[in-house]
């Protein structure tokens, strides 16, 4: 979706403000929001792509007015509501009102193995790679309503394949509950002037990681 999360190239947000000696969390509730979000992926069973879409799929005004962990919370609440794990009336009441679903729990002993395993996304390739390092490719002009990982600032622009990463879970389908549908994944590099025109900073090159169906051969 063309949401407010897709920020590359937008203007008006002001300077970057690094915080010296920044703490890992800025409030106790951020710690708890972080932890319940990670822990609920086990009983919730959602993919990382579903959770990203739940966070970004909101009005630009809402997205831009929330802090980072407030967006995580909003996404978590939506994912839980969709699955009937925790419903809006329960959140309003501050206590359980409906029976629990029969879902697995992330126990204390599961934490370290879960973090060590992570969520690798590489899969056996379904077909030979269509592109090779050095190929010129066009990032398609596409505007799906659902989740996608092709940022707007490269759509319609031509770049060069720099790395080939093997086949990886396709986020657009994974977020839409239509399966992993692995595709070849490429690092595609664009010249600054191709993205930003004649005023681009000299010497700039920018890459995105793009799945094969985001790309077409370019002359």
């Amino acid at each position: 979706m063309n949401g407010a999360h897709d920020m590359g190239g937008m203007d008006g947000f002001g300077p970057v403000v690094p915080e010296p000696n920044e703490p890992m969390f800025h409030a106790q509730w951020e710690r708890r929001a972080f932890a319940i979000t990670l822990a609920m992926a086990r009983p919730g069973g959602w993919t990382i792509d579903m959770s990203r879409f739940a966070r970004e799929n909101r009005s630009p005004a809402d997205y831009l007015s929330k802090s980072y962990y407030q967006i995580w919370l909003a996404g978590l609440e939506q994912l839980m509501e969709e699955r009937g794990l925790v419903t809006a009336d329960e959140v309003a009441a501050g206590k359980p009102l409906h029976p629990r679903k029969d879902v697995p729990l992330l126990g204390a002993a599961d934490v370290a193995p879960m973090l060590a395993r992570g969520g690798p996304t590489e899969r056996p390739a379904p077909a030979p790679a269509r592109f090779a390092v050095g190929d010129r490719v066009l990032a398609k002009e596409m505007h799906p309503q659902g989740h996608t990982r092709l940022p707007r600032y490269v759509r319609g622009r031509t770049g060069v394949v720099e790395l080939v990463h093997g086949a990886h879970v396709f986020p657009d389908s994974s977020a839409a509950s239509t399966g992993e549908q692995p595709q070849w994944l490429y690092t595609v590099t664009f010249d600054g002037a191709e993205l930003w025109g004649a005023d681009a900073e000299p010497g700039l090159r920018v890459s995105v990681d793009a799945w094969e169906s985001y790309l077409e051969s370019a002359p």
Binding site: R32, F34, A35, I36, A39, L85, V86, L105, V111
Partner: peptide, 21 residues
């Protein structure tokens, strides 16, 4: 409120949450 509901429903283990943090 969310943590209370999740804990009472048995969806999260408070010890696991502390470990993650």
């Amino acid at each position: 409120a969310l943590e209370t509901i999740l804990t009472e429903k048995g969806y999260v283990d408070p010890v696991a949450l502390d470990l993650l943090i």
